[in-house]
Amino acid sequence: MKAAVIVFPGSNCDRDVAVALERVAGTKPLMLWHRETEVPSDLDLIVVPGGFSYGDYLRSGAMAAHSPVMAGVKAAADKGVRVLGICNGFQILTESHLLPGALMRNRDLKFICKDVHLTVESADSDFTRGYADGQVVRYPVAHHDGNFFADDETLAAIEDAGQVAFRYCQPDGTVDADANINGSRNNIAGLFNRDRTVLGLMPHPERLIDQHLGGTDGVPMFKSLLEALS
C-alpha cells in the first residue's frame, strides 16, 4: 500500500495518522505539503488528517478545500484512489464536495474531546472490512464543528445509497438522541461517497491503536486498508 498524508499549515494529527499507518503497514507514508500541485500517480491511499488547517479561520476546512494540493487529491479520488478524511479532513472533504453535506458547530457550541461509541453501518468497504456490520466500536472525538448537516433530499439520498459509515450510538449499539453528541442528522459520524472509495469521519481511529492509549478499536481500519490495497 502506498499511502500519503496531506500536511496543511495547521494540520496537527498528521503525525498521529502517519504513526498509525506505519505501525500497521510497516512503512512510513509520504507526507505531502499543501503547496504541491500534483500528487504522485502511484498512490493507493491519501489521508487528509485532523487539525486546524489555515487556522479554520473561515469555515472549518473551507480554505484547505481550495489549496493547491486538493486539486490533485480530487483528481486522484476521481480515478478511484482511496481517500480517508479524519476530523478536519472530513470537513475538508465536504468543503471539496468529495462528500455530501456539511459540518456545523456542535449543538452545544463547545469543543468536545472524549471517547464515543459508534456503530459500523457497513463493513463492505476497503476502510471497514476489518469490522462486522453493526459492530460497536469506541473511537475518540475532538472537535468543535462535527455537527453533520444535509438537507432532507440529500440526507435521503445518502441513506438510500448506503453511504453512512458510522453513527454515534450508546455502548450497547442503540442509536438514539442521547448518543448524538453534537447534533448530527441521523447520528451520522462518518460517511462514504457513492463508490465507497472515499470515507470521511469526525472520530479519530488513529488515536486508539494501542493498549497504552486506552484501546485498539482503530487498528482494524488501517488493517482493512492495508489488506485491500496491497
Binding site: 503525525r15 498521529d16 469543543f111 468536545i112 474531546c113 475532538a142 492509549l213 486506552g214
Partner: peptide, 16 residues
Amino acid sequence: IWEQYDHMVMGDTVVR
C-alpha cells in the same frame, strides 16, 4: 472543563 480540551492529540496520552 477537560472535555473541552483536546487531551489526546499527538497520540501519546497514557493517563487522561
